Amino acid sequence: MATFRKLLGNSAFMGYAFTQGLMMAAMFAYISGSSFVLQELYGVTPRGYSLVFGLNGAGIILASQIAGRLAGKVPARRLLAAGLSMASLGAIILMAAVLLDLGLPMVIAGFFFVVSSIGITSATTTSLALQDQGRSAGSASALLGMLSFVFGGIAAPLVGLGGEGTALPLAIVMMALIAGAVVCFTLFTRGPKRAEEAAGR
């Protein structure tokens, strides 16, 4: 508990923890609401939905592989910023598709960018959050995981608040969560640049 109190008072750690938690909550919102949106509102068949779900899963794998290749060559904060930018683009595409009725392909594109970005943001937030924790790394990792599931548990039911017949609640929830992640990263994780990151390692 003393370690947790110390971690909760560490603004940089909590900034990364909240960034990860909010991004994972966006993922939980997608898992909770995408089947209804795609199958009930856009008429996607169960087989078609499984293909879309698989495509997004492949996007996570591809993004994580790219992040892994760039690790050590590109500073982790820059990779995280890229992942958050990718998620933000997906949220904007999804919101535009819902509000302007741009059709199924744009909805799928929005989902793809948001979900795939998890492959970048999850690894980089974990790495950045744990890099200075030393002997507290185990407790810090546990706190990271707990926050992700707490935020996910809160976010998942919110996508159904608008009732049937609209994808807008899902789009709003995902955009709000990703915007929150960007704010946490921007405001709370600033600090002295590490020499290795300044050198691009």
Rank of each mutant, 00 (worst) to 15 (best):
F28S: 06
L38R: 01
A129R: 07
F111E: 01
F111R: 03
A176G: 02
A123G: 14
F113K: 04
L22S: 07
Q39D: 03
V44M: 11
F4W: 09
R190N: 08
K193I: 12
P75N: 10
G160F: 15
S64F: 00
R190E: 11
G9H: 03
L89E: 03
V107Y: 05
G48E: 00
G134N: 13
I60S: 08
T189V: 12
V150C: 08
Y16I: 11
G200T: 12
A195T: 14
F53K: 02
G9A: 10
L158H: 05
G43R: 04
T124P: 01
A129Q: 06
F149V: 14
L161K: 11
L130S: 08
L100N: 06
A129C: 09
A76E: 15
G191A: 14
G21L: 05
T186C: 05
G152N: 09
F112E: 02
V150A: 15
A140G: 12
A71L: 09
F4G: 02
E196W: 12
A199W: 07
G9D: 13
G48I: 02
A198L: 13
F151H: 04
G180F: 03
F113C: 12
L62F: 13
V52R: 06
T126W: 00
V182L: 12
L41Y: 03
M106V: 09
A96R: 04
L143W: 05
R194L: 15
F149D: 00
P192G: 09
Q133N: 06
A58Y: 00
A123F: 07
S32M: 02
K6G: 10
P157V: 11
L102V: 11
A71F: 06
L55P: 01
L38S: 00
A91L: 05
V183S: 02
A167E: 10
A199Q: 14
A198Y: 03
M1P: 07
F112K: 01
P169I: 09
G134R: 12
I66A: 13
G9T: 07
S117K: 11
A171S: 14
L38W: 02
G153Q: 09
A109C: 11
G110K: 10
A137S: 15
S88C: 13
Y16S: 07
M27C: 06
L144F: 12
G48D: 04
G103E: 06
Y16E: 08
F113S: 06
